[in-house]
């Protein structure tokens, strides 16, 4: 871990980075904001950890808990909302056993995230499955995709 963080700190010094870019780097490197990583960087740069957490909790992009192996991002923008995204999300949460108030299943296989708009509104409703954008998603199409993923995930 230290080696990766050393790299992040060096990059930060070279590019006049700031707290946001450090957190973005940590998130890219580890998939979420590991507590030990934040404390390490905080000590190294002599910036109190509270500053990092203040920023991390302000922005929706940062995760304080590990994400699942498969990340499913559901768009909740206006266009997707009027085309029924809420139903898609409800069925995702149910099908993937995401506990209430959480976004990741207990076995860390699936994360269901909501975002405000991914900018593909003319093919609403939009669901992103592991970075691939799917447009005009119907509940049937979605369930087929999820069942496929579930089968794949249980094999690994």
């Amino acid at each position: 871990m230290e080696e990766q963080l050393e790299g992040i700190v060096t990059r930060h010094r070279e590019n006049e980075g700031n707290i946001i870019s450090i957190l973005q780097d940590i998130e890219n490197e580890f998939g979420y904001l590991r507590e030990d990583a934040i404390y390490w960087v905080s000590e190294r740069l002599d910036i109190p950890p509270a500053k990092f957490y203040g920023v991390a909790t302000f922005y929706a992009q940062f995760h304080l808990k590990p994400k699942g192996k498969n990340v499913i991002t559901a768009c909740c923008g206006t266009a997707c909302h009027v085309k029924g995204s809420e139903r898609l999300i409800n069925s995702l949460v149910k099908e993937l056993d995401i506990p209430p108030g959480e976004d990741t299943s207990e076995d860390l296989r699936f994360t269901v995230e909501k975002v405000n708009c991914v900018g593909a509104c003319s093919i609403a409703p939009v669901i992103i499955v592991n970075k691939a954008v799917h447009g005009k998603v119907s509940p049937d199409k979605l369930m087929k995709e999820i069942k496929g993923l579930k089968a794949g995930a249980s094999k690994n």
């Binding site: 909740c76 923008g77 206006t78 266009a79 997707c80 909302h81 405000n116 708009c117 900018g119 593909a120 509104c121 003319s122």
Partner: peptide, 10 residues
């Protein structure tokens, strides 16, 4: 481009 439901700038 924060307006949800807009993608001109994108």
């Amino acid at each position: 481009e924060g307006d949800p439901g807009a993608f001109m700038d994108r």
